[in-house]
């Protein structure tokens, strides 16, 4: 499974990273050498093995349904949430106009 320029361009588009044609071309052999190398995993016999789900045996903790119980995980912080925004107006984040 090796990638060509079209595939790299497609992945880059999927990952929303703009690459010039030159960058795509340069990336092809780099990705292929990494992919060739990771493909040795295919030779491992994994019969009957479940993919790892939790690295340390542990299950998911559930929290109580309380609003703003912890200021670090609650709401009501509009100014803080917007403080770093490249564009914000009237309490909203601004993005280039989207046509649906």
């Amino acid at each position: 499974m090796s990638v060509d320029t079209a595939t790299v361009a497609k992945i880059a588009a999927l990952a929303r990273i703009k690459l010039s044609e030159g960058e795509v071309a340069a990336m092809v052999p780099e990705l292929n050498s990494i992919l060739d190398w990771v493909e040795q995993l295919a030779e491992v016999d994994v019969t009957g093995i479940e993919p790892m789900t939790a690295v340390i045996p542990n299950t998911l903790r559930l929290r109580d349904d309380k609003v703003n119980a912890d200021p670090l995980t609650g709401g009501n912080l509009r100014d803080k949430v917007l403080a770093n925004a490249p564009a914000n107006e009237h309490g909203f984040f601004g993005v280039p106009k989207v046509i649906e």
Binding site: V67, N68, T73, G74, G75, L77, R78, V81
Partner: peptide, 21 residues
């Protein structure tokens, strides 16, 4: 509160008022 945060789910609040980090 929301599925993964403690922000309120109430309908009709000021924009971005019920948003957690």
């Amino acid at each position: 509160s929301k599925l993964f945060s403690g922000a309120s789910t109430k309908f009709g609040a000021e924009p971005n008022a019920q948003v957690s980090l």
